[in-house]
Design a binder for these strands. Structure first.
Lengths: 230, 230
DNA sequence: CTCGAATAGTTTACACTGTTTACAGTTTAT
DNA sequence: ATAAACTGTAAACAGTGTAAACTATTCGAG
């Protein structure tokens, strides 16, 4: 017997807690997430939740992990809409997926990449999950690089030795690509994240009413041109 | 008599509240800013603070405004370390100032560009102050453009009409530069903000221990090269 | 200088929050 | 059937922001 009745109920409750939490985050933002409100909506008392999560931070960590895998899955889906040989398409698909996921899940994105909530410190177990999403980006660029499809002048720009040293050190810990690729990936990530978060925090609203999509599209094409993706 | 005794004390108290608030934000982060804690440290009771700020949000707004002007001043100082004819220098100086200010005032930066705290909605009176900091960036690029010192191919990339239309509409509201300049400025802002916030939120720590400075420097030079600043 | 008004601050109170402890009820395994 | 494990509640503690009532101080005008 794989699963007793109680175990099943337990998993369902854990799920219901998270669903209720996301619902409230969607309605009122991540910062005002309240255990008591969750319990209230679930028809139970607040201390009961402590049977499922050690404390508020543990719940937040679980939410962040779920959000990260949803996010990463979306990046992969966007990438895989194009064949493995179409490096430009895969890059474009992934970038679009990034921004679209953020637009559809603004609160979730802020939870991942915004100011840590209420003294919430990045939990230990979160590292690997967070890196997985970066690996998608790095992979797209890395595979293009390996295939010789990155022909922009940026490749020529010599990395300062201080950076090269650090990136090379990472290779001994399993980093699969060269320093140039890592630098490019971090650069692209910064750009996409910058556009996304400026948009989500309403700093672009004064300049672009409905044209944010066009702005992002344009900048994606610019990145492709700069990298020299083929 | 320019200022009565009571008026002087009042201004001093307002100042002391803000100083105390910044002290606590620096120690424990912006999210856990507490009126009661501020009052406690000042040797008074919490409701007393309401004589000076309508509520917690009003205090936050005041803090954000102060932070913005400190930030903007720093950008201007960084820019003005180079003569008006040295557009590249001014751009570089401003970018460096941006990142350095954020590194020295991480909590302040997060307050400006991070997730809005506790249902705190961007206050009305904040718009102009926020835009002033963007105008510095736009001005540096705009002046270079006017002087014909932007010779990169990006200038050639044709803006989609949907974007062009929006930027041109802004010109009737006092926007001093062309659409190309605005697009470039928004792009550069996205990049710097992206690097800065990824760094501040510790997402770069896994890749770059002490080398963040080198990373940012490198990307600044890349932007200069891409824009074709001379 | 005196008196009424404005201001500054305290006390008290309310409605929230996360969390702990002690206890009761239910389910499971032996 | 019984003991152990688990799930939940009730009560309580220490925080929080904020409102109302009240007191003490300071100010400007007569």
């Amino acid at each position: 017997m794989a699963q007793t009745r109680r175990e099943r109920l337990r998993l369902e409750t854990i799920e219901e807690i998270k669903i209720t939490a996301w619902k409230q985050i969607g309605e009122q933002g991540a910062a005002s997430l309240s255990l008591r409100a969750i319990a209230r909506e679930m028809g139970m008392t607040a201390p009961g939740l402590y049977r499922y999560y050690k404390d508020r931070d543990a719940l937040v960590t679980a939410l962040v992990m779920d959000a990260f895998s949803s996010f990463t899955n979306r990046l992969e889906t966007g990438r895989d809409a194009y064949p493995v040989t179409d490096h430009t398409g895969r890059f474009r698909g992934m970038c679009r997926a990034y921004f679209q996921w953020a637009m559809e899940n603004p609160q979730r994105y802020m939870l991942l990449f915004g100011t840590p909530i209420q003294g919430y410190l990045f939990a230990e177990e979160l590292g690997p999950v967070a890196q997985r999403s970066f690996l998608v980006l790095q992979g797209v660029i890395g595979e293009a690089f390996v295939a010789g499809k990155i022909k922009g002048e940026v490749v020529g720009l010599k990395l300062p030795t201080s950076l090269k040293v650090q990136y090379e050190a990472l290779r001994k810990f399993g980093m699969p690509y060269t320093g140039t690729v890592t630098q490019l990936a971090l650069s692209v990530w910064s750009m996409i994240h910058g556009m996304t978060s400026l948009y989500l925090y309403n700093y672009l609203a004064g300049f672009l009413q409905e044209g944010v999509g066009a702005f992002v599209e344009f900048e994606i094409e610019k990145m492709i041109a700069i990298i020299g993706l083929e």
